[in-house]
Design a protein around this nucleic acid. Structure first.
Lengths: 106, 106
DNA sequence: TATACGCGCAACTATTCGGTTGCACAAATT
DNA sequence: AATTTGTGCAACCGAATAGTTGCGCGTATA
């Protein structure tokens, strides 16, 4: 099964997990405490996040700390880039219209 | 069925449609020509995109033009914002380390 | 050494997803 | 008036999804 970043962030729980571990690495158990699902379910989400490299693991004794791979988030940003250009253009169009209205005021 | 932007952009075909109509509005038939699926399948995608307001319709005779609601794309951008801050911090941390290495060079 | 703990993996299940085909309906064209 | 065209909608289907429970395997702790 092919995993990509966009499919990974489609699930709200997964986005919440990303938000959680963004600031500091956490173990599956610690993460699961924040949700209304089983540890195994969280484990599955972490597996999916790992598969598309949004998350990396660091074993520490019998605990595994999961940390966000922030750089991978840029992939989404990169896709948005093309549209950012458009919405900035739309804004400058609007600016143009507005300034025309201004100068043509009686 | 609850639709949100993140679930909408999870599908690659949907992302391609978004890319297609970003620059100019198109009819379902015109869009379908770009893909290897039926017009009805495209119609379904457009329905999903409409449900989460990523796309708006404009009837013109018997044709319906679908146009990207660029502003809605900002919702994704807004979510990325919190992580953008982190990855910029990571970069400045790196800068710091690098400049330390530099100054401490023999 | 025995026990408790943290974790991943496998099997099962209900639901959703993305696709198909067939149809109905309104708008254009003849 | 009859036909073609553009579209949405409903029914169906196989695959994927997100969850569950049960289990086994290392690693700590008693």
């Amino acid at each position: 099964m092919r995993r990509d970043v966009f499919q990974a962030i489609a699930d709200p729980t997964r986005r919440a997990i990303i938000g959680l571990i963004a600031l500091q690495a956490m173990t599956p158990n610690a993460i699961a405490e924040h949700f209304d699902t089983s540890r195994q379910a969280v484990s599955k989400h972490l597996q999916i996040l790992t598969e598309c490299q949004l998350v990396k693991q660091e074993q520490q004794g019998r605990e595994i700390y999961y940390q966000l791979e922030v750089s991978k988030m840029k992939e989404i940003d990169k896709w948005l880039e093309q549209f950012r250009k458009i919405w900035e253009d739309r804004f400058s169009e609007l600016d143009h219209v507005l300034s025309n209205l201004k100068t043509n005021k009686p």
